[in-house]
């Protein structure tokens, strides 16, 4: 098992480095001098003097070849030093550290909401496949899945923020859950469809298993059967949770901008628009690491819940 984990970690690291190289290459290949662009923030600004551009390039190491910069950056990133932001000169690690807890809380709450709403919906759907509850839950989930988060969010803020006045239009953490309800619900609704569909499929499979049929023959009630089936679905649910992380992280960019939430999504959007290379690279590492960690955690928990999976990871002939 240890070797399998190590192999996975190495593969994840290689993927992360590959993504970094691609992002770095794309940013380097984009036309325009990043130093001149960084100094000229704002559409109205005039170009900076050659001396100022040269000073900026020297200060940020932009006068070195791209390959040298990349290697040097990766070396420092390994020590969690992502360099200084082109935009405001602050350490990128500090900028990211300010935003990560906010995005983490937002996404975690959205995921919990999706599970809280999606599991009962799926259970209702699985009880009568093709029935009214199944069709309705499928329709609702598909509707929110196909609508971009920006559209869902705008609709929610117009209804609940403006028309009904139940929540503030912009995220206001000072007001507790009410103040952050709209971005959480927007992200949660986007995750509702995959949760509902996966849980429904798992439940149908579990309810049709020989064990379930035997239990039914012994007189087990419907509710108990669904609960038992849910327990059997824990592993695919964890895998689903891990697979939702990239989707939620991507959705965060739009939702955070819409509701003015100062999370990593908004920071990423600002950094891309400003061609702030160190910040974009730092955020790429964090987002990549989030995906890797989420899937590793899901794998670990799956192995705990179902020891057969850990056994399956073992190499043929490997001693137990």
């Amino acid at each position: 098992m240890l070797r399998a984990l190590l192999r996975r970690a190495l593969a994840a690291l290689a993927t992360l480095v590959g993504v970094l190289v691609v992002v770095f290459a794309l940013l380097s290949a984009a036309p325009g001098d990043p130093a001149a662009l960084a100094l000229r923030d704002g559409a109205r600004a005039r170009p900076a003097s050659p001396e100022a551009v040269a000073a900026f390039r020297a200060a940020y190491g932009l006068d070195r070849p791209a390959a040298v910069r990349l290697v040097s950056w990766v070396g420092r990133a390994a020590r969690l030093d992502f360099g200084r932001s082109f935009r405001d000169g602050r350490p990128v690690a500090a900028r990211i550290a300010e935003t990560v807890p906010i995005t983490l809380a937002l996404n975690l709450a959205a995921l919990l909401l999706a599970l809280a709403a999606g599991v009962p919906l799926a259970a209702a759907a699985a009880r009568r496949p093709g029935g009214a509850a199944d069709r309705l839950s499928g329709l609702v989930a598909d509707l929110f899945f196909s609508a971009p988060a920006f559209v869902t969010g705008t609709a929610l803020l117009l209804v609940f923020g403006v028309r009904l006045g139940w929540t503030p239009v912009l995220a206001e953490p000072e007001e507790g859950l009410r103040g952050v309800a709209l971005p959480i619900v927007t992200l949660g609704l986007a995750a509702l469809a995959p949760v509902t569909r996966v849980v429904r499929a798992c439940l149908l499979e579990a309810l049709a298993s020989p064990a379930a049929l035997a239990a039914k023959a012994r007189g087990e009630g419907e509710a108990a059967a669904v609960l038992r089936a849910l327990r059997r679905s824990a592993v695919p649910l964890l895998a689903l949770g891990a697979s939702l992380v990239p989707q939620l992280v991507a959705g965060s960019v739009l939702v955070e901008r819409l509701f003015a939430v100062p999370g990593t999504g908004q920071l990423l959007a600002d950094s891309v628009f400003a061609r702030d290379v160190p910040s974009v690279l730092g955020l790429t590492v964090v987002a990549g690491a989030a995906v890797v960690v989420a899937s590793a955690v899901a794998d670990g928990l799956s192995a705990v819940l179902d020891p057969r999976l850990a056994e399956g990871e073992r190499e043929p002939g490997e001693a137990s």
């Binding site: 901008r257 908004q266 959007a269």
Partner: peptide, 18 residues
């Protein structure tokens, strides 16, 4: 000063007094 990049949310906030 509130940082609100999107007009889609800034305007509803303005209209509702935020």
């Amino acid at each position: 000063f509130r940082v609100v990049p999107e007009t889609a949310s800034a305007f509803p906030s303005f209209r509702s007094g935020g």
